[in-house]
Each structure stands twice: as structure tokens, then as C-alpha cells.
Design a binder for these strands. Structure first.
Lengths: 364, 364
DNA sequence: CTGCCTGATGTTTACGTGAACACGTTCCCT
DNA sequence: AGGGAACGTGTTCACGTAAACATCAGGCAG
């Protein structure tokens, strides 16, 4: 019967205020145990209970013991609503995001939650299942009313733009996957740098040019990767083939792969994430194009699975844990110093992990 | 300057209580706009503001408009701490889990968050990075003090067991990945049923027996799958080879695969999740064992990627969305009816998705 | 014309906590 | 021994909201 609350306080508030008593015949008289209850049982004032509860000095050991005993007996738990009201803060960070299914968000959220916990903060999740304006606006509105001290947004920029006005005044915000560095703090993997490493790696192997399977247009990260891919090719004087547009899913990578398999010139592909690379590998395999002998493939993310693709995938490693850590650091810095206006972009370096899906092109 | 708070309330509380004023020279006088501020600007009582804010009837249109205008002007937002204190609830559900990285948890959490949002509840995440007793206990303790009305636990049973006593009295709990059905409500995929479908499928194809790559012992789901696998084999009178023990990772599946490739008798393998199946596929491929011609492989989870493995993976589909939905339903039912003691196990059916990684054994 | 009822709005109060201040005791120092 | 500092504990109050009750004006029926 763990879940039952104590049947009766040991010393019921007989003579005191009759709150809750009147007109409630059989019902439980009180939802929760309050400081006053503990104080009464321990025979002290509620302020002393407060002091014990918060570990303040200046309470004699015997009194403290008495209070602690009363707490245990009644199963007292501080009421966080009252605390939050008193202190004006919740020790909670809100996280707005689209989907936990994407590799990036779920790992970033996990890191955020872990680091926040280490700082004594909890995480409140506001997912937006469908990325309509209404949903985004709704999420921001809800967030504004929520028990939250600061907000981390993992979201594309243009959707954020329209929702901006809804952010609670005085809110502390850090954004991922966006270039809103002029208005909010931004933390993100250095997409451009990672992409450059990937594309240059392919060019250095001797490939004439590199094809691209891009992520959805709505994603800022996908845009940045596509831009950087094009920039490297232009810089190297290589022709840039028209990119394929995917949606992060393996299925879209597969579709692109079927098309790419028909391009005899295609010897190197940069996929904007590992899942699309997976679909790509399967399509090429199906069409009898060997990887890496015929076609080299590079992914992005370095998911734990990428090392076990066939063949093991060369990919750009993102340090999601570090991104999450810096997000938390960012909002907590704002929160603690009150320094609202510290926009700027904090880029976490990426690194290329070379495995077996890349090789020099077949000598003609 | 979206983030700035309004410089001054339009009609400062000149004669009223001097709270916050004394000794704070340059500082902002008030952190937040309260009902009283809105009431003053609108020239009504704060109670009327409350009525407007909560959409109560009985406020004349002109008054309502005035209040709404004042709200807009001051950027008023209800204080959820005060609300929670008043109402005694937070409209928030806490979720305790180990890791978002595992496919199952992250998809379950997402479904939980989505359905909770639909019911007007937010989700507070309490991750436990390392599964030590202390961490688990700490998480439960924190959760007890947190702004949370109910708790969903995604965790193995034996760790929960020891932490049980720490759960806040009166808390409403639903558990996933556990058999604590006698004490808490449990929602889970029907692991045994899914496993039976997978193993029977292999036997029906004509395989003599089925090997097993199990998940970690600490996982209840892994235990259930291993049990059911063994039960089906025994029922069919097949010898049960010693299972390999993995840790859900593709790497552990790869290791098991290398060993299995040396077993000439092995023609069918049931992996306890898709990631291990991925590692398995690669190991078999490396060792020249063709899938499904030489060895059939079945996974569990049906991750979105599984359809794009080489070859596309036959696997057991888990309906995580449904599990999440029922979790939320469960706690909200408890919450609303106050029916604490409705333990029982709610199993969500699984189904087998047959793709190309399974085939009859090579005829000898 | 009077009295009551209805509907709109204001006033009071409690929710649980903890800072600030008040009070009383003990013990030390002169 | 007397004064006061230091310390332990109690009392008061405010945080922002909303239910319960109070009040007030206007309309309508007897």
C-alpha cells in the first residue's frame, strides 16, 4: 500500500481553523501534508520546520530531530508550487521541439536533461507534432504560462520568427538549429565546418565532384550543410550537380539512391544525415553499385549505428552532448546574471570519422 | 527588443504598498505583471481580471474588452505557481527514465508528451544517466518535490523495487517495462506475444531451431523476450541453443554475429532489438554468410530504419505511440477519479512485419 | 410604488512557504 | 552582578490566484 497517504495526521488540528472540515463528510480531509501539520506534531512553529526543511543553520539538534521525525511520520513533502511562488522560480527549463524521433533532437534533449539535472533543474518538454503555425504559436503560448524559468528551442528559424512575439517577456532563451544569433543565444554544431571536412575528404580522395542528398528545406541545419557543400565545390572549381531533396528519412535516401544509381558519373555522395545515407547504401547495393568501389558515401551525425552499416559509414560526428551542455549553460547564465541580451552563436566543432564507405574513385 | 519587459506599468501603484520599492534604486521594481497590475490599469478589481483570464461568464463585454486591452498592454501572463498553489495541481506529468537514446524510450516519451499535451498536460523529464541505486533514489526524491501531479516510470523492475518507498504518497504512477502490475498500473508492448510471432514465423519457415541474441539482463523487456523465445522452442520440441547476451547496441549484435557465423548449424536468429540485428547482419555479411539464404534474422522494434537494412529486416513492430497514449490515459484516469488502486497490466499487441531477412533454410 | 430577484462587480480570505523581524533565554565579558 | 551579544524560536506578512461571499444597481411584478 505504498501509494496510500497516511490515514490521519497523528495529532489532528482539532481546535484550529476548520478548513476543509465543513461539509466534507467521508472524504479525505487534506490532500497534502503541510508545514503547519508537521509543526503541530513536532510542537514547534512552522518557521522552524521551514528551517529544517531547507537545511538552515540555527536549529538545535534535538529540535531538528523532532521535526525530522514528524516529517517522516506524516510523510511531509515540500509543496513546490508554494516554493515557486515564494521564490519566483521553478528550477525548470522548458524545451520546445518538433520531434524526439530525429536522432539529433533526442540526443540533444537527453544531454540537456542530464546537465540541467546536474544544476538542479528539471526539463519540461513541449513537443510540436505537426509544424503548423498554430501549433508553434500554441506551444509558445503554453510555454509562457508554464512552470518554466527559461526556454530552449530546438527548431527551424522561420517558424520561430513568426512565433517570436509570443515568447514571454523576460524569458531566457537559447536556440538550436537556427541562425537567430542576433536575437537569441544560439548553440549548434558547426554544420558548415563538418560539411567542409566531409566534402573535402571526398575531393582529396580524387573524386571529380560530390553529389548531395539534402535534408528538408525547413531545417536550418540542412540548409547550412547544402550551402557549405556547394561552397566547397565552387572553391575547388568542381561542378555542383543538382542536389536531391530528402526529408531525413532512410526512405527518402533510398529514393535518392535509386536515382543516383542511374548517374554513371556519380562516384561520391554526401548525405545530409546517416539515415538517408542508410537508404542510399541500400539503393546502391540493390542496383549493383558497390560502395565504396563504385560510389563513396559520407553521412552526417555519426549515430551509434553508422559504424555497423554495410559498409561502415564514413560520417561527420556531432557532439550532441556538448551542444546540450552549452544550451543549459547558456540559459542558466542568462538566468543567473539577468543578462538578457547576450545574443551570439556558439558553435560546437564537428569531426569527420572515416570508416569504409569512402575510397578513391575507380581508376578509369 | 522582444525580450524586454514593459518599462513601466502604465499606472504605477503610487499610493499602494511600497513592496519592492525600498532600497532598490535603479533596479526593475517588478519581475512580473500580476493581476493586480492589470486590474489597476483596467480600473476593475483583480477578481474581474481573474474571471476574464479564465473565461468565466458573467463579465460584461465592455469590461472584458477593457481588461483584455490592459492585459495586452502590460503583457500579462498568469503565474502558474500561484495557480498551482491555488488549485493544488500543476497539469504536469513527470517521466522518469534511463536514457532517451534507446529507440523505445524516446518514441514512448514522444507519444506520452503528445498525448499529454492534447489533454492539457506538460511533461517533466527526469533522466537517470547512470543506473545506480543512488541516482534512482535521487530521481524519485526529486520527483516527489517536483511540480508534478503524476508520474510515469520507464524503468526496469528491480531498480524500481528498492526505490518504491520514496514515491510521494498519493502519487499516481504508471510503469513501463516492468511487471509491477500488482502495485502500479503497467502499460507495455506485449513482449511475449511479439516474440512468439517472430519465433514461430522462423519455425514455420522450416528452421530446426532459432538462436537468440538477448538484451541486457537488467531489462525486463529483454527478459520477457528471452523467456518467450525459450517457451516457443520448448513447446515445439526444438533444442534451445544458449542465448548470446547483448546490451541493445549494434556493436553487441555484431559481436554475437561473429560468434554465430562460426556455428554451421545456425540458420535462424531472433535478435531482441533491431540495432543488434543490424550488427548481426553486418557480421554475417563480413563472414560470407548470406541473409536470408544461409541465415534468417528477425529483429524487434521495427525502427523506421529497419526497412532499409541490407536486407530489409523482418521484425516485430511495437506500437510505441499506443503505449504512450495508454500511459497518459492511465495516470490521468487515476488523477481524475482518485482511484489509486487500479493495478493491472495493459498490454499493447505487437505484430510481425515480414520483409526480406527471413526465408526457408537452404535445403540440404 | 415597493420589494425582491438577477446579474455584474468588489472584498475577503486561504492556498504553503520563507524572509524579515520580534522575542526570550543563556552565556560571556567587564 | 549587570549589560548585552549571540542564538534559538515564534510571529507577521507577502507572493499571485480564485473561490466564496458581499454589495450594488436595475428591472419587473404585484
Amino acid at each position: 500500500m505504498v501509494l496510500n497517504e497516511p490515514e490521519q495526521p497523528a495529532a489532528p488540528a482539532a481546535g484550529g481553523a476548520g478548513r476543509g472540515g465543513l461539509g466534507v463528510p467521508g472524504g479525505r480531509r487534506k490532500q497534502r501534508v503541510s508545514m503547519a501539520d508537521v509543526a503541530e506534531l513536532a510542537g514547534v512553529s512552522s518557521q522552524t520546520v521551514s528551517r529544517v526543511s531547507n537545511g538552515h543553520a540555527g536549529v538545535v539538534a534535538s529540535t531538528r530531530e523532532q521535526v525530522l521525525a514528524a516529517m517522516r511520520e506524516l510523510g511531509y513533502r515540500p509543496n513546490s508550487a508554494a516554493r515557486a511562488l515564494r521564490y519566483g522560480r521553478f528550477n525548470t527549463i522548458g524545451v520546445i521541439l518538433f520531434s524526439l524521433s530525429s536522432t539529433g533532437s533526442s540526443r540533444t534533449v537527453e544531454a540537456i536533461a542530464t546537465h540541467a539535472a546536474a544544476e538542479g533543474y528539471a526539463i519540461t518538454l513541449i513537443p510540436i507534432d505537426v509544424a503548423t503555425q498554430d501549433n508553434v504559436l500554441g506551444a509558445f503560448t503554453r510555454m509562457g504560462e508554464l512552470a518554466v524559468d527559461a526556454v530552449i528551442v530546438i527548431m527551424e528559424i522561420h517558424l520561430l520568427d513568426t512565433a517570436t512575439v509570443q515568447l514571454p517577456p523576460g524569458a531566457h532563451v537559447v536556440v538550436v538549429d537556427s541562425d537567430a544569433g542576433d536575437r537569441y543565444g544560439v548553440v549548434d554544431t558547426d554544420q558548415a565546418d563538418g560539411t567542409r571536412r566531409a566534402v573535402r575528404h571526398l575531393l582529396e580522395l580524387g573524386h571529380r565532384t560530390v553529389w548531395h542528398v539534402a535534408g528538408p528545406e525547413s531545417s536550418y541545419a540542412a540548409q547550412r550543410r547544402a550551402q557549405a557543400w556547394r561552397a566547397v565545390l565552387e572553391e575547388a572549381g568542381c561542378p555542383a550537380p543538382a542536389p536531391f531533396r530528402g526529408d531525413w528519412s532512410a526512405e527518402s535516401g533510398y529514393a535518392a539512391g535509386l536515382a543516383l544509381a542511374e548517374e554513371p558519373d556519380c562516384t561520391a555522395v554526401f548525405a545530409s544525415n546517416d539515415q538517408m545515407a542508410l537508404g542510399l547504401l541500400r539503393a546502391l547495393h540493390e542496383r549493383g553499385r558497390s560502395v565504396p568501389a563504385d560510389v563513396s558515401v559520407v553521412g552526417f551525425d555519426d549515430t551509434p549505428d553508422a559504424a555497423f552499416f554495410i559498409p561502415p559509414l564514413t560520417t561527420v560526428h556531432q557532439d550532441f552532448a556538448e551542444v546540450g551542455r552549452r544550451c543549459v549553460e547558456g540559459v542558466l547564465h542568462q538566468l543567473r546574471t539577468g543578462d538578457d541580451s547576450r545574443p551570439g552563436t556558439d558553435l560546437v566543432p564537428a569531426r569527420l570519422v572515416i570508416r569504409e564507405s569512402t575510397a578513391p574513385p575507380r581508376t578509369t
